[in-house]
Amino acid sequence: MHISAKADYAARALVELACDTARPLTCEAIASAQGIPFRFLKSVVGDLRRAGLVRSQRGCEGGYWLGRPAEEISLLDVVRAVDGEVITLRGEPLAGLDYPGPADGLPAVWRAVQDRTTEILADTTVAGLVHAAAAAGPRVPAAGAA
């Protein structure tokens, strides 16, 4: 299994936006808060905007907000916005996958992995991640962390 950097950064950006809904956040602020490369985040936020998961405002008071309530944004929405398919095999969707002979049962396993992954992602919302972090309390840096 591979979770793309785009999906990870997109989810982290949305959680950051969900934590501070009083004002728009700039890409610079999100990148700094989450330790994400700024140029990469700009591309990711563009994908999120096109998918309606964030909205933007230009100008000195500008930045990004969530495009809809955090309760209505699932990780499945995020992955599909930036990566398209949830799981692919060598870049191809699993739908038409078929193997001959003794490996003929393997595509069903890959599709089951996709189905369960999709279910987990669909059941996990940005709001749920924010609430879980709030319930856990402030994080204490690991020993030796800067």
Score class of each variant (00 low, 15 high):
130 V>R: 06
107 P>W: 01
98 D>R: 14
17 L>K: 00
52 G>D: 04
70 A>V: 07
69 P>R: 12
135 A>I: 01
53 L>Q: 08
97 L>F: 09
83 D>L: 01
76 L>A: 14
138 P>C: 00
96 G>H: 08
94 L>N: 08
15 V>F: 13
118 T>E: 11
108 A>T: 02
67 G>R: 01
80 R>H: 14
85 E>C: 05
11 A>Y: 10
79 V>A: 14
18 A>K: 01
53 L>K: 00
116 R>N: 12
31 A>I: 06
88 T>Y: 03
90 R>E: 15
140 V>W: 06
22 A>M: 13
1 M>A: 10
131 H>S: 10
94 L>H: 01
58 R>Y: 08
2 H>W: 06
90 R>H: 11
40 F>T: 15
102 P>M: 14
14 L>G: 07
6 K>V: 13
75 L>Q: 11
29 A>F: 07
139 R>I: 13
52 G>S: 01
26 T>C: 05
47 D>E: 12
102 P>Y: 06
35 G>V: 02
122 A>G: 00
103 A>M: 11
125 T>A: 06
31 A>F: 09
64 Y>P: 03
93 P>V: 05
114 Q>R: 13
58 R>V: 01
57 Q>G: 05
74 S>W: 07
123 D>P: 01
33 A>N: 12
6 K>A: 06
41 L>F: 05
66 L>I: 01
132 A>K: 08
103 A>C: 04
116 R>A: 11
49 R>H: 10
1 M>W: 10
72 E>I: 05
20 D>N: 09
104 D>E: 09
15 V>E: 02
138 P>H: 12
138 P>T: 13
146 A>G: 10
88 T>C: 06
15 V>D: 06
98 D>L: 14
140 V>P: 01
